[in-house]
Design a protein around this nucleic acid. Structure first.
Length: 556
RNA sequence: GCGCCCGUAGCUCAGUGGAUAGAGUGACGGACUUCGAAUCCGGAGGUCGUAGGUUCAAAUCCUACCGGGCGCACCA
């Protein structure tokens, strides 16, 4: 539907031209070996190639000489302004500025789709958050939510067919313990004393009190319930569904929705864990020992074999998990991405092993760890302990920090390293806060466009891109033109944080441009050109912020 | 002990095998009669944890070591 971006198209044309030039010098060079890439530094062109270094050995000639020969034989392709040999043998390419500024008009014409790539015909399932339905979402769940949702948006824009899924652990022992906790709180409502000592593993959190209140209001018969273990599973299921719904509402407030909430309970009811064990058995991957059934995970690079069916006949947790992932493949996804919590390091090699044991190709399952979040206030860590029932929830974080700021902070850092979340900084609506820096650029553009619309409502001036010659204008044109490539790259690297850097750089160029140049007071033709430019910049800002779930208000 | 992740400017962090390793922030010095100063412009700040190896080229890949974080149940 969407054509290849002009930027990528230009890159491709240069690559082909270089290939032809190389073929004239050396009998045959595989096209894949010809790299045309973004230079690391300004002043090295729009694209650069290291081809001369690669050919140096085969041609036994100095890279500089090869580069000069390659460069001299290149056609302009209708897009190159100049080609230069630099350093020890790099070939740098500058794009024609008129060709470039046409992409700005392209952005202005397609404000809702600019930056997107054509479909890749690849179905991806991203599973994230998947918090147990035994309590409210906590801050690290927010990190996973922001990061996973942004990755989904970025990959979707890059042409992947993406679904988001939340796996609900509503079947295990945890749910029974939640039911136990609810029973205790119901007894408390009746005036009974709390158990001494508090039973092991039962949720002590305050939120269970609220649930008990709620339960009592909805169930007239609650007073006849005693503290009997046979009631815990039912109470637990009720509470788990309440908490799951609450999690869904909190995520919605955070701007994150899922295509599917996948129930472990249903997975078990449908017999999928049994099917996985049977399949492993068929494939000769199981053996009996010490009264349990073991999986030969060492055959797939794991450290030691582990139990899949316990001596009491129950499954270990890996079995339903494996069944869940097998089911994802069965549903037709080409690629699975899991964002796992910080306590799942040990899970990775096991999951890889068992999926390999089931015959799935390991590179089709990517597992990324979302590392823990430490909240800082006044430079000091805020105490959090789920066990003690005192923790900072995502809802509390949202009460304190705007969603835009929270999401920016979570996405800005790569996922696999622990982060400090500076509450004071995120709350600040000042220059120190990077979110507002970007939003302010958008607000300024909105404000200029509003003034333009009222002062020059009947402007008939045509857009003349050749007037945009100032360095900052050129920088902004390139920023806009690059969006599709930035998105494609962020998707490929699974690195939504690239969007934050892109936005910060573009905003910086815009603010500098704004201080240095006038728009409305200029002659009509230049005014019109700059209006087109900032419209394009606004589109790029809006598109890029949308991909990380951050808004761009018209006024701040 | 084993596994995963991380050591880059005072601090927080980017960095795709390429050129002189970058931002932000802090401290310091400047800029509003202007379409929004929530902004801009300066200079200063580095043995990329250490030591080897691969390569024309290493912060990036490999090995060892040092330092930090997390995880290592027939719990989930």
């Amino acid at each position: 539907m969407i054509a290849e971006s002009r930027w990528a198209e230009g890159q491709r044309k240069i690559q082909l031209a270089l290939w032809e030039a190389a073929e004239r010098l050396l009998a045959s060079v595989p096209l894949e070996q010809i790299e045309v890439m973004a230079p690391t530094e300004e002043g090295h062109g729009d694209f650069t190639s290291n081809l001369a270094f690669r050919l140096a050995k085969a041609l036994s000639k100095a890279p500089v000489k090869i580069a000069a020969e390659l460069a001299s034989g290149l056609p302009s392709l209708g897009l190159l302004e100049r080609v230069e040999v630099a350093g020890a043998g790099f070939i740098n390419f500058w794009l024609n500025s008129t060709w470039l500024s046409d992409t700005v008009s392209e952005a202005v014409r397609h404000p809702d789709s600019f930056g997107e790539s054509a479909s890749r015909q690849e179905r991806v399932l991203i599973e994230f958050v998947s918090a147990n339905p035994t309590g409210p979402l906590v801050v690290v769940n927010g990190r996973a939510a922001a990061w996973g949702d942004s990755l989904a948006r970025v990959m979707s824009a890059a042409g992947y067919d993406v679904d988001r899924e939340f796996y609900v652990n509503d079947a295990g022992m945890q749910v029974v313990k939640l039911g136990h906790a609810l029973a205790i709180r119901l007894e408390e409502l009746k005036g009974a004393p709390l158990p001494e000592p508090w039973p092991e593993g039962v949720y002590p959190g305050e939120y269970v009190r609220a649930l008990a209140q709620d339960y009592a209001e909805r169930h007239g018969t609650w007073k006849s319930l005693g503290l009997h273990a046979q009631h815990w599973p039912d109470l637990g299921r009720w509470a788990a569904e309440r908490l799951r719904a609450q999690q869904e509402a909190e995520l919605l407030r955070f701007g994150v929705t899922f295509d599917r909430w996948y129930s472990e309970k249903r997975l078990r009811q449908e017999g999928k864990p049994e099917a996985v064990v049977a399949k492993l058995d068929e494939r000769n991957q199981l053996y009996q020992a010490e009264g349990a059934r073991w999986f030969r995970s060492t055959a797939f690079g794991d450290q030691k074999d582990y139990v899949v069916v316990k001596s009491d006949g129950g499954f270990t947790y890996i079995v339903p998990d494996a069944a869940y992932h097998a089911d994802k493949f069965a549903r037709g996804y080409d690629l699975l991405i899991d964002l796992l919590g910080p306590d799942h390091h040990g899970h990775l090699s096991r999951m890889r092993a068992i999926m390999a044991g089931l015959g799935y190709s390991p590179e089709k399952l990517e597992m990324l760890i979302i590392q823990m979040v430490r909240l800082l206030r006044g430079g000091q860590p805020v105490k959090m302990s789920k066990r003690g029932g005192a923790f900072v929830t995502l809802a509390e974080l949202m009460d304190e920090v705007e969603v835009d700021a929270a999401r920016w902070f979570f996405v800005e850092r790569s996922s696999d390293t622990p982060m400090d979340f500076d509450l004071d900084l995120a709350e600040m609506k000042t220059q120190d806060n990077p979110v507002y820096y970007v939003q302010y650029a958008g607000a300024r553009i909105h404000s200029i466009l509003a003034a333009y619309a009222s002062q020059f409502a009947d402007d008939q001036q045509a857009f003349d891109p050749s007037l945009l010659v100032a360095p900052l204008e050129q920088a902004l044109i390139r920023d806009v033109a690059k969006l599709p490539v930035v998105v494609a790259r962020a998707a490929q690297q699974r690195a939504p944080q690239a969007m934050c850097r892109y936005l910060t750089e573009m905003a910086s160029h815009f603010h500098a441009f704004y201080r240095q140049h006038r728009i409305l007071e200029e002659a009509p033709d230049l005014r019109r050109a700059r209006i087109e430019l900032i419209r394009g910049v606004l589109v790029a800002i809006q598109r890029a912020t949308a991909m990380i779930g951050v808004s761009v208000p018209q006024r701040m």
